[in-house]
Each structure stands twice: as C-alpha cells, then as structure tokens.
Design a protein around this nucleic acid. Structure first.
Lengths: 352, 352
DNA sequence: ATGAAAGCGCTAACAG
DNA sequence: CTGTTAGCGCTTTCAT
C-alpha cells in the first residue's frame, strides 16, 4: 500500500494537485510538467503521476489555473472582409465578449481577409504562427487552406473552423451548423408552406464553390425531389452574396417564371431579393425563405416578405469557439451538448 | 488630486481589490465589506470605496472569488413530481451539470413537489428558508405561491422561476420562454402547414389553470383568428398532461370531427395523441404540432406523425438558472443575450 | 530531471 | 467600525 493520502481517501472534497503530488511521491512542479506535457521528465515519474491522477480521480480546477496564469491566451479570429451583415454580427459578438474574455484571461484579435482567394487566405493563416495560441477561422474549403491549417496545428496552435468547415484538415473543432440539414430544413419549410400548389421554386446561392452554399442547395433539392414533386426546383443562380446582383437575378427570375411559388436564398444579399419581391407586388405571395437573422431579415419576417429565416446564432458561435479555445489549453472537458450550434428556425412569431 | 494609484492610472491590466483599497484609503477587508454589503461600515468609508471603484473601473475577478470561497453556493431546485418527460429532462440536465457545478463551487439539491397543490407548494418553498442561497422553482402562479416566493426573497434568498413564471412575485429572474409567443408560433405553423384548407383545429391543453398553458392557447387562438379564418379553433380540452387521458380525448375529437385539419397540443402527454393518430390512420394527414422535444416527440417527427415541435432547451434553461444564481452572489454582470431562452422550432430535418 | 517558493485576486477568520 | 493575515489550487521562475 502506498503512502496514505491525507485527504481524498474517500472523496472528501476534491483532489488537488498537491494530493496528486503526494500520492505520486513527486513535487508539485513535476506533476505540473506531466499534466502540461512539458519535456524533461523521467518516464517513471510520468507513470507515477498518471497513476495518481487516476486513483484520486483528479480534475484540475479551472479557476485556480486561470488565476495563476500570468499571460492571457491569445486567440485570433480570421473573418471575411467585406460588408456581409452576418459577418458583421460575428464581429459585434466578439467585441461584446471582451468582459468575458478578460475574466477568462483570453485576449482576442480579429483580422479581415479576402476569403475568396485561397492563396491569400492560406498565407494569412500561416502568418498566425507564433502570434496566437488558437486561431478561429471562417475559411473556404481548399487544399491550400487545408494545408495551412494543418501546418498551424503542427506548430501546436489550436485551430477552430467557424461557420464554414474544412473537414479534411486537422482542425480541432468545427463551430457551425450542418448545412445539408439546414438546406433540408429549408426544403420542408418551402414545401409545406407552399400548401400543395404546383409550380416552380427558385434558388439563389452566393457561390456554388462555397462549401456551405453547395451543401445547403443540395439538401434543399433532395427534400424537394423526394417529398414535393409538385414543385420543380430551378437551377441555382449565383448572386455572389451581393444585394445588387441578387436583386437583378431575382427580378429576372420573377419575369421568366410567372408561376414561381417559392424562393430559397441560400446565401447573403437577401435585401436585394426582398426589394424585388416588394417592387413586384408579390411579396408575401411567394414563399421566401432565407438564412441568417439580420436586422433586415427580421423586418422582412415581420412584414410578411419572408416566410421563415434559418439562423445560426452568432453569439453562441463566438462563445462556443472561445470556450473550445480555452478548453484545449486548460484540458477542461467540453460539454458537447452546449457547444452544438442549432439550426434555428424563425417565423415572425418567435423572434428573439 | 488624491493619492497616486501605483497601477491602473491608465488601465495597465485590471484594477484589483487592493488597488481599490489603496485608492479609497481603507483596508482590503473594508472594501470587501462594502462590496458584499456586509453591515458595520462607516458611511464615509462606504462612499470612499464606491468612489474608488468608480474611478478605477473596478470589476471583481470571479475566478479569484470562487477560489477563495470556502463554502459552496447552495441552490435548490423545486420540480414537479410525477412522470412528465420534460421535467425528467430537466432533472437529467441538473445531474449532468455536476462537473460544472463543482468547478464553480455550487452544490445543487433537487426536490419534487406536487405543483398542482398551491398550499403544499407554498409550504415547500417556505421550507427552503436557511437551506439554500438560491431557489429555482418551477411553480404554479397562485397568490399563496407568490407570497412564499416573496418571503424567501425577503430572507435574502435568490429566487428564480423556471419554465412557468410567477410574474407578480419578487423573483430575481424568470428562465423560460414567452408562452404567448410560443402559442402564436404554433398558430403560424399550423396555419401555414394546413395549406389554405378549410376545417377545424383541435386544441388539447394540460390544464387551463396553468399559466403557461393558458398563455399558449391564447396566443394560438389569436393568430388563428387573425390570419387563418378558414380554420376554426375548437374549444380546448383538458388532458391533465396524462397520456391515457389525452389519448381518450383525441380519439373522441377525431370521431366527432371528421374534418379535423390540425391538432395543437399545448402541454404534455403527446404520446397519447400520437397513439390515437396512428391508430386512426390519419397520422401525417392531420397537422399535429406540440411542445417539448422528448424522445417520443423526436420519433413522431421522424415518422411524420408530428409536423413540428416547439421546444425550450432544457440544458440551456438549467445552465442559465445556475449562471444567474451565482451571478447574484458574485455580482457578476449577466449577458442577457446568452440567458434568453429561445422558442425553438424543430422539424424532422433540423433535429439536434 | 526535480523541487521549493512566490504569488494570482479574493474571502473570512481573528484581532484590535 | 477597521485592519492583518492566512490561505484557495494552480503556474512559473529559480535553484539544485
């Protein structure tokens, strides 16, 4: 029988680092080295520590760790440049979390990048080496980008993809929604809201080369084909997430398809579509479903121009990314349930 | 100009309690007394401390506070006894939060009460005096209950109402959804999903004397009356949240109304309705909308028996109640955005 | 390769 | 009414 632990023989309170040190018969510092995977510890000591941790059921105390750490965790956000309202909302949420971040010893920096250019994006990602402990990236899924992410991870930097995933990379986590499922949700909404009428359904994406847009569009088409045969989905048009362009495209769509029953906007630039619908006098008659609860979308929901909005909660995403970032460095367990980003459906009646 | 602060003249780092003590020219202990509103401090000192806090922009460090506190915050949950699946989910979430609670020095206890008996409930609430720092109560809105809550608050115990509010009481917070809005949401869902057909809509509540059920029912009727005149809402039937009873009621409903287009279940006991619908062969033909994403509801959504489920996230509610409970004792600011419970809409496609 | 010791910012006895 | 002091559990120099 090893040395008698003075505490926690039977879970009186919670085992502390000192308990572990005593049980493992090494010093506090050594335990710390093992737990934080720092080099220069004898294999024997490592084993002893792990044994003790196991036996005492040790769990680090995040508050104590946070208090003792002199330097903050640096997390860098890489967000698309441009005027996308949803990205703007993400920015606001980051800014709004500063109090929380201060409390948790994390400091954030936000960088804007042109996401549509893989080379530039990859270079920007690589430039984060040594600049931060965790990188949170809203990225385009491209081999160059994937390689850059993997390189960062190899350097010991945590990488979290946000909103749009790079699934084959070695990123630590993806924070965002299942876009296939989101597209299917749009499909069911459009199908049921159209009430058995026969006709055509328009789809406007930002760009089919964006993974999330392609996935949503696919999920949507699947449901429509399988469950709403009376509705014919027209080939998607690319609006580049630009209100000007989406306005033109939707105007053309309405002109060409007088029997248009519904319109699914996969990406951004919904203001353009909304304008067209209102101008044509068919707002509220055509079932218009889109993504992201921006102030404009909220207004469109309230006046009946939009039938439903599918949303991912920007605040939740930012908080989740932040929690995951520090969880890695403090080896805290993550509560998967809390980190799952929901596919929110908003009607005019359940707006937050 | 008062004594020169050695730090934080210009926000170098963050002001600490010692900074405040120095600036206010009192001791650490006095600052603590003031901030924690403990008695026995001269008015002058109080003013000095408040001034210093203001000037230095002091914010307490929750991690340090949590670390220093020897006793855990005791929070008591008062939940309805019985076999309601949603309440069961709340229980599980409480149990599942134990790690988090340990990390934050809070200990929880859960008590079961017969919520339908105001006297008993009020007595149970009062019995919490001195037993805990915060009480989280899923209560019935009744004068006796309200008085009991107010009494607890007067004793310095924080009270949080959960799921069902007691709005005229002095409770610190309500954690739950806007049930009127939830009812309206159900209305829009039923209205649009019915696709312009004319007919009758059944409503089954648990009990109209439950505030949340009454509110949902009201919101539902409002929307139906205002926006879907082709659909006639039948008078609500009381199913006591009991599957046996709801099964009987719904069977009677189907028999009496062959033209029944939709069914809105306001409370619990949806399994009974589902069984009736399946037995009658009209599952999927009648638009069935209900509340709370239980395992049974999830299955009904997937097989098409239910068209939509309106949910309040049990995990979110428990975490929120817990955060609010400790926020009061550590005077941390609450991030209203994060604590707002959403009215979730689930279709078969966006299940978590 | 390992240990001793000094805090992080706050709370709570315990003395005045 | 007010101040002094000893920790909470961990991280991190600095010695050894």
């Amino acid at each position: 029988m090893p040395s008698t632990p003075q505490r926690n023989a039977g879970q009186i309170g919670r085992a502390t680092l000192s308990d572990v040190a005593r049980e493992a018969d090494v010093s506090l510092a050594t335990v710390d080295r093992v737990l934080n995977k720092r080099p220069g510890v004898h294999a024997r000591s490592i084993a002893q520590v792990h044994g003790a941790v196991e036996r005492l059921n040790y769990r680090p105390d995040p508050a104590a760790a946070r208090l003792a750490r002199p330097h903050p965790h640096r997390v860098s956000f890489l967000l698309p440049s441009g005027t996308n309202t949803f990205v703007e909302m993400l920015r606001e949420q980051i800014a709004g979390s500063d109090g929380w971040m201060e409390d948790h010893r994390v400091s954030a920096q936000t960088h804007a990048v042109d996401v549509f250019e893989p080379q530039r994006l990859a270079r920007r990602i690589l430039s984060l080496r040594g600049q931060c402990d965790t990188a949170v990236v809203m990225a385009l899924d491209h081999p160059l980008v994937q390689a850059a992410i993997d390189e960062l991870v190899a350097q010991g930097i945590g990488v979290i993809t946000l909103v749009s995933d790079v699934p084959r990379s070695r990123r630590q986590h993806f924070v965002g929604i299942d876009n296939m499922a989101a597209g299917r949700t749009a499909g069911t909404l459009v199908g049921r809201f159209s009430g058995g009428v026969k006709g055509e359904v328009g789809v406007i994406v930002g760009s089919l080369s964006l993974r999330d847009h392609a996935e949503r569009s696919l999920g949507f088409s699947q449901v429509m084909a399988a469950e709403y045969q009376g509705l014919k989905v027209l080939p998607p048009m690319e609006g580049k997430d630009d209100p000007k362009l989406t306005q033109q495209l939707s105007a053309r769509l309405l002109a060409a398809h007088p029997k248009l029953v519904a319109l699914y906007s996969v990406g951004a630039g919904n203001r353009g579509i909304s304008a067209t619908l209102k101008a044509s006098g068919r707002a509220g008659k055509i079932v218009f479903v889109g993504h992201e609860l921006t102030p404009a979308a909220r207004a469109d929901l309230l006046d009946g121009t939009m039938a439903a909005v599918i949303n991912q909660d920007a605040g939740h995403e930012i908080r989740s990314a932040l929690r995951l970032a520090i969880a890695r460095l403090t080896r805290e367990p993550v509560h998967a349930d809390q980190e799952r980003i929901r596919i929110d459906i908003y009607l005019k009646d359940n707006l937050p």
